[in-house]
């Protein structure tokens, strides 16, 4: 279990990094924390010729709330730092909780938020949280900088909208306005494992009617990408998140989800588990609205 041979470079600007990624002579890969990439290198499942380490690019190490109240997390920001950040915990608790469910502190000390998003394991917590929070992704490449919405970002298992010659420089999370409640629930085999199945929920309370004005419901471990189910959201909107509404939403989830089998659980288990977690998560989210 040793990596294949490659070269390594640590540029100090995004421009340099992008130029290196665009080099057609050598297949380059971005590394920051390496907590997803290095296991794949060790197993020789990833075989880059050049690793471009972006952690020495100062601007990528920024985590801040911008003038419009959006949380901006640079590509080199470690998970542990983001999860411990006061602004994140206060304003984006769903994100902080989802980060806390990634592996173990020993992993989160090195792993980056953007690295987990760009790696895109569909059983991972962060992609699902990102879709639920309607995050946007800033991608820089030889053709300039573009911004992609969360639902377009995750393309397939281990695949995102970031092209081989591009760099995810920043993940941007809009603020959660008042009367929004959230929850993240998952089933794992062991403490710290990837989710067998999980769900992130954000509900908005219409204070006049005390019903759900809007809902975002996204599942992990349920498909090749984080699975957002508008039908479930529709089933929740306008309800008081009572027993009947929850049962109806759960029925929709059961009917719509089509997860896969693996050694840890059957598809059937994931479907049932997703529906069950949905009820739990909606209940919690509603209490937090």
């Amino acid at each position: 279990m040793k990596p294949t041979s490659f070269d390594y470079t640590a540029p100090s600007t995004v421009g340099e990094a992008v130029a290196l990624l665009g080099d057609e002579e050598r297949e380059a890969k971005v590394v920051a924390g390496g907590q997803s990439l290095i296991p794949m290198l060790n197993m020789r499942l990833a075989r880059p010729e050049l690793l471009v380490d972006i952690t020495r690019i100062p601007e990528l190490g920024r985590l801040h709330v911008d003038g419009s109240g959006k949380l901006r997390i640079g590509a080199a920001v470690r998970q542990a730092r983001a999860a411990a950040d006061g602004a994140v915990r206060e304003g984006w608790p769903l994100l902080a909780v989802a980060i806390g469910r990634i592996g173990h502190p020993q992993i989160r000390h090195r792993g980056t938020v953007c690295g987990s998003l760009a790696h895109h394991d569909p059983a991972a917590e962060l992609p699902t949280a990102a879709v639920c929070l309607d995050a946007r992704f800033v991608i820089t490449g030889p053709r300039g900088t573009r911004t992609v919405g969360a639902e377009d970002f995750f393309v397939a298992t281990f695949s995102t909208a970031v092209e081989a010659d591009e760099l995810l420089t920043e993940a941007v999370f809009p603020p959660l306005p008042a009367h929004h409640g959230w929850a993240f629930e998952e089933l794992t085999r062991r403490h710290g494992d990837f989710a067998t199945v999980g769900v992130a929920v954000v509900l908005e309370r219409d204070t006049a009617t005390d019903t759900v004005r809007s809902a975002r419901v996204v599942f992990c471990g349920a498909g090749p990408v984080p699975v957002r189910l508008p039908a479930v959201e529709d089933a929740l909107v306008g309800t008081d998140v009572g027993e009947h509404a929850l049962a109806a939403a759960a029925r929709v989830a059961l009917a719509r989800l089509a997860p896969a089998d693996d050694v840890h659980a059957t598809a059937e288990y994931r479907r049932e588990g997703a529906a069950h977690l949905l009820v739990r998560a909606c209940t919690t989210a509603w209490e937090r609205c």
């Binding site: 085999r189 067998t196 840890h264 659980a265």
Partner: peptide
Amino acid sequence: LSPSRVRA
């Protein structure tokens, strides 16, 4: 007795 097997 994994959760999946118990559910089954």
